[in-house]
């Protein structure tokens, strides 16, 4: 039950985009067409579900204070937390590269649709943000996995909704200065208001 509530919270209440503004760069840049938005969103779900638990293990068995004690008792008290950023980002970059190679080998058709988006994901702040939030909130491994998956689903939902609205807006008559980024910001704000209604739901 706890897991379900973490998942739902990650999708709706604490949506990566509307509550934390994470992954905005690709959210704004790749939301012109629904089909590409679905591609990128799927890739984000995929990567988040793998990376949040992976970084959980790194945090738990390498970085945390006294975490290295499982190798030998003399490492008791060693705290490598200052290496957190470098470790996390290196693991994200490495796993993204790995996932790209595996997908290319195993399923060329999936690679065809995800391929170009995977490198983009290494610098998507939603991924690193998910990993950092996981540390801040002291999740267990199962919770971290659910949280990663849920965050990805929330992100996919947001980008697909925005892409659909932008497709419809393409032929509307918008003031010149507002075209593109300005209008997208306003739409995102309005969508944010809608998502605010989930906050009242206590989990």
């Amino acid at each position: 039950m706890e897991l379900v509530s973490i998942g739902i919270k990650a999708v709706f209440v604490e949506n990566m985009i509307f509550a934390y503004f994470l992954g905005m760069c690709s959210y704004l840049a790749v939301s012109k067409k629904v089909s590409t938005a679905i591609g990128l969103g799927t890739a984000v779900i995929f990567v988040l579900t793998i990376i949040v638990p992976a970084n959980w293990m790194v945090q738990e068995y390498i970085l945390k204070e006294s975490a290295l004690a499982w190798i030998s008792p003399q490492f008791e008290g060693v705290n490598l937390e200052f290496l957190q950023f470098i470790m996390f980002i290196a693991i994200i970059a490495a796993i993204v590269q790995l996932v790209e190679m595996v997908v290319e080998k195993v399923s060329p058709s999936l690679y065809g649709s995800l391929g170009i988006f995977l490198p983009l994901i290494a610098v998507n702040c939603a991924i690193l943000g998910g990993a950092l939030f996981m540390v801040q909130r002291d999740y267990t491994l199962a919770e971290a996995t659910v949280f990663g998956f849920g965050s990805g689903v929330g992100w996919l939902m947001a980008i697909v909704a925005l892409a659909a609205i932008r497709e419809k807006l393409k032929y509307s008559n918008v003031p010149d200065g507002l075209k593109g980024l300005g209008l997208t910001m306003i739409i995102t704000g309005l969508m944010g208001i809608a998502f605010k209604s989930f906050i009242g739901i206590a989990m």
Binding site: A19, G177, L178, L181, G182, M185, T188, G189, G192, K196
Partner: peptide, 15 residues
């Protein structure tokens, strides 16, 4: 709230 940030940024961009 986050909404205000989007709106203000949109207005700055517009101007």
């Amino acid at each position: 709230d986050s909404i205000g940030a989007f709106m203000i940024l949109a207005i700055i961009i517009w101007i």
